[in-house]
Design a protein around this nucleic acid. Structure first.
Lengths: 114, 114
DNA sequence: TTCGTACTACGGTGGTTATCGTACTAGCGC
DNA sequence: GCGCTAGTACGATAACCACCGTAGTACGAA
């Protein structure tokens, strides 16, 4: 197998492909809600975001990978590699454009019920 | 068996028992989202609301019963009997108090993506 | 090249869920 | 009483999902 220095890009839904059902389903899990809440503390800019391991969760890392993928495939977060690490950040601009107020309402609700 | 004219009350979670996870999970289903959207067109007052059969869904009635129950047990809707019919209405006051803006954001998102 | 870190892919398990059909109960009107 | 309408309870099925451990890949550093 060629060592092609694969860019290892990850599939993300385009903004217009993000579906409300999928977003709500992604948010309707305690662990994923914790991830989203944690990511909200980090920036959403290009150099910003948190790695998977920075978000501490009481589950196995393989399960953590699963949750991050669900969030990415739903369009809630953006993931890109930087070295061996994977940087995660909220897709706030897309979510706010599609579902105004939804992310903020969920984040506020999650924070006040922590 | 005694014909005790059972009141047939239905169990509802109290306001403080409503959990964000459960609400998001209840809303994360296309059929239930349709139900909630439809109920939004009816009032939430005592004499207001819609019966189960007024909300038209492309599923069997037994499945419809299931979805209404999920919504009720999550605290999203209130159900009470009136004759043979069951009146459903959104628990807007409770949801707005617990999760301000959440219901409106979901309803607006669902409406604009219909 | 060897090692360590960060994450992934895979297979499996147990629990939950969306769906259905069928059979049933509750109330209303005749 | 009789039927009619509205909804329910039950059992079954198939799909999905959260979780785990193990084995593996990708990258950077020593």
């Amino acid at each position: 197998m060629p060592t092609t220095t694969a860019v290892r890009e990850l599939p993300h839904p385009a903004r217009e492909e993000i579906r409300l059902d999928a977003v709500l389903h992604a948010l309707a899990d305690p662990m994923r809600l914790r991830i989203v809440t944690a990511l909200n503390g980090y920036g959403e800019g290009e150099g910003q975001g948190a790695t998977c391991s920075q978000v501490e969760l009481p589950i196995a890392t393989s399960t953590s990978t699963h949750h991050f993928r669900v969030l990415r495939e739903a369009g809630v977060i953006n993931q890109c590699y930087r070295g061996t690490a994977k940087i995660n950040c909220l897709r706030r601009a897309d979510l706010d454009a599609l579902f105004p107020g939804l992310l903020d309402a969920v984040l506020r609700a999650a924070a006040s019920h922590a």
